[in-house]
Design a protein around this nucleic acid. Sequence first.
DNA 1: TACTTTGTCCTTTTT
DNA 2: GGACAAAGTA
Length: 715
Amino acid sequence: MYNLRLSLHLELLNPEQLAAVTLADEHALILAGAGSGKTRVLTTRIAWLVKGGRVTPAGVLAVTFTNKAAREMLTRVSAMLPASPRGMWIGTFHGLCNRLLRAHHREAGLPQSFQILDSQDQLAAVKRLCKSLNVDEDRFPPRELQWFINANKEEGQRAGAAAVHDDQTRRFAELYAAYDEQCQREGVVDFPELLLRSFELLKNNEVLRAHYAQRFHHILVDEFQDTNRLQYRWLKLFRSNQNSFFCVGDDDQSIYTFRGANVGNMAEFEREFRVAQVVRLERNYRSHGNILDAANALIANNRKRLGKNLWTDAGAGEPLRVFEGQSDIDEARWLVEEVRALARDGGRLDHCAVLYRSNAQSRVLEHALFAQGVPYRVYGGMRFFERAEVKDALAYLRLIASPADDNAFLRVVNVPARGIGSRTVEQLIDSSRQRGTSLFEASTGKAMIFRKLIEDLRNETKDLPLPEVVQHVIERSGLKAHYEAKPEGTDKLENLAELVNAAAAFTAEAREAESGAEADTLTAFLTHAALEAGEHQAGEGQDALQLMTVHSAKGLEFDAVFLTGLEEGLFPHESSLTERDGVEEERRLAYVAITRARKRLYLSHAQTRMLHGQTRYNIASRFFEEIPAPLLKWLTPRFSKQEAFSSFAPKKKSFEMKAKDVGGFRIGQNVMHAKFGPGVIIDAEGQGGDARVQVNFGDQGVKWLAVAVAKLQAA
DNA sequence: TACTTTGTCCTTTTT
DNA sequence: GGACAAAGTA
């Protein structure tokens, strides 16, 4: 036991952390605040369980959300254990579902080499479906249909069970059914389908379910506040009377409710599993006191919280520095100067981050950084495996692995151009539909030449190692020649060459990991491409300023953080006002951003900003007022809102004007209605006795209500 | 059929 | 400002 303590460095844990790590075999909920050593607790617990002989590696199931977090967990656990943690199931929800579905593809009703659609592919598939069924795309926009399908799948609902309350949703439900049929026919699976399908697999197959429920004695869940309803139900399938669930989360860092995450799962878990141990980790090891005070004060404005207050003994540190720019360009210019000053003082750029609410904001910043020669790296945005030319090459590979994949077929049947235009394709689609076959099978005439090409490719690459397969396909498909002929094709050729490298790297890693669940190397590689869109970018390793959205910064920390674009309408984002509890989520997002900083935090906003090609006049974010003034040091004289407004006098309906009271209510406010339940005000008109408000009641729909008649209550 | 131009949307966050 | 679709041109 003494040895165990030393080798796992248990002596370095604080009492709460130690309690969490060494809990007996029981269900536990860990409320882990930002910077409280959450990952450390999770990984140390796994190592402690295994080393102490409480569980074999094969009995561990650990789930995270991002690939980054999964890798981190694997690395840290490996470092603490003598042998590699072979047999453990550590991965993302999607990765683990994929593993289950590959292993039991027959029971799940899928071909062994089913392909995975990313969001882009899924939208293309939805559009294609709408075209083939002559759907009026103005009344039933494909994007909304995609959203409808995914939202339902994430609630665990198939088309038949989808909630329907008007003509549009009724049609959407029909199309949802048709979409699922199309996917099934083509042997493809979208992201939420990975979850739903494996959920159904275990739910309907008691033998299989019991097998896994008995196998995994310890189930550990990271970022539990981000789980959606389906994920929680999925987890519960693994429950048996011999295993223990260890869920770690922070309700204050729940920033994915917009895509179905359900913070309520935490309370639900506590109740359903009769959790006796709720451990709170409130000591923060990351930030200076002023930064924590600001974060605590800000988040205290949220009403729906489990309640938690971070503390540190690291000392107050510096005040938060606030800058107001006249424009987004001005803000960027200031930021670059500040970054250069930090670098001159010996700071490392890769320990500094610039955070923003939306990806579109990075361009102005990048421009300014580039102009001044400051090295930087942008995370997010277009990922490697999402680039057009890379997706083209992948489409060829998918057709080799899975010829029924019509999505892939249509993507490259005429790339590079080989005389198969829209007319030919239309005829082909018709005949494939009549005969009930895939496009690949239905190919005749010119398309037959394409089909022959794919068949040749398959034969020629059958016995080649993966990187050579990729190389061969890029050349023989004509993609290489196609881009060589183009003057602007150099970047694209480089990306294609990079794809060969990626295949080589993947093969090398696969040989080490040897997961064994995949049908073959090619399918494994295609799965990898879909599930891990390629986060690692070129130029890694060199010292560079880090640019990313607040969302992608979750889980990271930096010595200095610039939080930019703190303006009403941008952060909090205007679309959040029309969502129930939308502003609370924005505030949690701001909380996440603030708590990324170790030593220094800059907050900035700009009076004007170019957005979607238009200049917008924004006032400073309400979040400034929610941080105690003594913590803030204004680098620019503080503007009063009145001044900012009168000097620019925007003509259009501005954010500020819309935010004023109408009949005692304002836009963005959460309300309660006796019949429709909770809702949020999304629009308002009229004054006094005539005032009407438009309220979004979620499932109950959106309604206009007269304030004088409807007995609305502030919620 | 292939390529170019014009026009029309949208744009929060991501596995 | 960019992605995508429709319309126009070689």
